[in-house]
Design a protein around this nucleic acid. Structure first.
Lengths: 151, 151
DNA sequence: TATTGTTATACTCTATAACTATA
DNA sequence: TATAGTTATAGAGTATAACAATA
């Protein structure tokens, strides 16, 4: 008798099929970078999504909740608590929208501006660290190729 | 008086800072591809994570829960229900591990094998569709660069 | 009639502690 | 003493329906 019918077991896992998939690789890379992102933002008491919201407000003073939702793939009901929290921390302020009485424009406070200068500095450094195995050209190529997938 | 002090509002949102970030771009690309993935797997009644689990079992007959967790970043308690569900659907079967009495080796059933042949076909086609704006060389480059981030 | 912002709520995903049986 | 698998449970993230105020 040979051992053809013995129950097999696995010593080293072969993930080569999954590793051919763009979605699998993009998700794993994103998780690694976002994990480092969370660590760097912890001193600022910001989650990834909080940084994204504050960054869009930074570069788009007067942006509305509706516009934030559309750009960050957040549903409106789930944004409410985030905005309330950032307002409670005195990082942002709501002002009436000059053209639409239903909407509120979102703005950084002085405290929020100061925080975001430091936070964006930290993020820029994180980018260098997270991609330190890529050349500058490779990093640029990566961003171009990723945008071709989703834009 | 000029309009310097008027409250500003936003017509077109500028996300250019976020778009310089590898994590942001990788996450958005992953979400787009995974959304298409979910649609293609729906006819097979598989979620993304179910496909990943079944794919690893396909290419690693006898793999254990522990090994699945380590390779897919799933916590052991959260894998239990998935394995039970796949077993209930007669796609996989547990067999005693030949070397470790605590562990169970996971194997595809004939039904599971049949399903995975079709599912992997569908996934290969999805890959081509999701990356149809990339050349074959660009697609290869993208996978290489993403692996340099997380491996 | 449609849209902005909101509340309430449900569902899914992820995380932690603790147990059992085997190593 | 440590590990594989499991249970129970808590917390975070994501989803839908419905409402008031305004367009």
């Amino acid at each position: 008798m040979d051992d053809t019918n013995q129950t097999p077991y696995v010593e080293t896992v072969d993930a080569s099929f999954l590793e051919t998939l763009v979605g699998y690789n993009a998700r794993r890379a994103a998780l690694v970078v976002i994990d480092q992102f969370m660590q760097r933002m912890a001193p600022f008491d910001l989650r990834t999504v909080d940084f994204s919201v504050l960054s869009l407000i930074t570069h788009n003073p007067g942006i509305t909740s509706r516009q934030l939702c559309a750009n960050l793939n957040i549903l409106a009901p789930n944004l409410v608590a985030m905005i309330n929290s950032l307002e409670k921390k005195k990082l942002i302020a709501r002002k009436p929208h000059p053209l639409d009485g239903r909407a509120m424009g979102l703005h950084l406070t002085a405290k929020g501006q100061k925080l975001m200068v430091e936070a964006e500095k930290a993020v820029n450094q994180l980018e260098l660290d997270a991609t330190n195995r890529l050349t500058a050209a490779e990093r640029k190529t990566l961003l171009v190729l990723l945008k071709k997938i989703y834009k």
